[in-house]
Write a protein that binds this DNA or RNA. Structure first.
Lengths: 192, 192
DNA sequence: ACCCTTGTTGAATGACCGTACAGTAAAGGC
DNA sequence: GCCTTTACTGTACGGTCATTCAACAAGGGT
């Protein structure tokens, strides 16, 4: 009988990212260690370095994965419905829960001091901002309004992040419906 | 000659909190260790435990100190000017800079997994929210508007936090003036 | 059936972690 | 000037940390 299973590089990377992400969600950055992640994944300690080069490399990969998993993809939708979908998606139970947000906040806390992670953040954020900016511009055009789409998009993203942070630190103080309403209230004077 | 200087418990606590905060600002939570803090403060390794009981105790104390140092005190001002002062104070250079915000974000990342810090957060946030809620209610009354002051205050605080996070992760993308403008734009439909 | 690529193991390394604690000495009260 | 209090020192301890690396073996190609 085989002593271990040999996976493709791609599959093993995905597994390790998932396990690491689950650890971050459950216990924050304290859970992000070689020992804990490898034990949880059922693999030996040497594997993370083999696939990611360093813990910082894994951290950056996990960040990209979290972005991909929790940021709604707006490109497939009709321009007029994209903003509504963004708000619904940002505060859906899959994303707007204590554990998932705990992973987000833990990663934010590392960005400023982990170059590989900061680079990944810049990349992801730029693409995210571009999507939201375009969606706001399209909606404004459809409604015959003139807005500074880039500025409104930046502010909306900040508001969403702040609402997520708040929910993570004290869930009862910021339920999903209140968060959605706050976003709509922010956008109304620009778009209605 | 004296081998060391003997300070009052209060003074030494203040010094250690300041040094720890400076470390958080400079290098995030990685800098928050017994060795680094004591070396930077020029004291021996045993002192933190003596004054704070544990590193978690110091962390909670540092959080309270950061709140006190960066949250503007509104009670001394006339009710109509409190919100303007809140916005000015929140994005003043003393607060709205990469290093100070780095300390904030690092601490946020620990709240969910450090009971002593979470308790301190609840206490501080509750008081902060109460101040902002009252300020918004007073301003609305002065302008003859009816608003859900508690909801607007919660959202405003989230927006401020999100703007701070954004500035910390990528300062050029969110200058102070843009942040202030975002807050005013959020409040206008409720208060103007 | 063999070989070769490469995913995988696991021990070794050296540094750092927070906490405990027994002893030292500074400074205020008398 | 002594005495009491307690701020302070500094070593010791048991863990845990990320990283290195030489050896192993799984499984596809031939």
């Amino acid at each position: 009988m085989a002593r271990f299973t040999r996976l493709s590089s791609e599959d093993r990377r995905a597994q390790l990212m998932d396990v690491a992400l689950a650890g971050l969600a459950k216990g924050g950055i304290q859970e992000f260690t070689v020992d804990r992640i490898c034990a949880a994944a059922g693999v030996s300690r040497g594997l993370i370095l083999h696939h990611f080069g360093s813990m910082a490399g894994l951290l950056a990969a996990v960040y990209a994965r979290l972005y991909r998993d929790t940021t709604p993809d707006l490109t497939a939708l009709r321009p007029e419905t994209r903003i509504a979908a963004l708000i619904e998606g940002s505060f859906a139970p899959k994303v707007f829960n204590r554990e998932t947000l705990n992973a987000w906040v833990a990663l934010w806390g590392q960005i400023a001091n982990t170059p590989a992670l900061r680079d990944e953040h810049r990349r992801q954020y730029q693409s995210y901002l571009a999507q939201v900016t375009e969606a706001i511009g399209a909606l404004a055009t459809a409604r015959g309004r003139r807005v500074d789409a880039a500025a409104v998009a930046r502010s909306l993203i900040c508001l969403i992040d702040g609402l997520c942070l708040q929910h993570c630190l004290d869930p009862e103080a910021m339920p999903a419906e209140a968060a959605k309403e706050a976003c709509r209230a922010f956008l109304a004077p620009h778009l209605d």
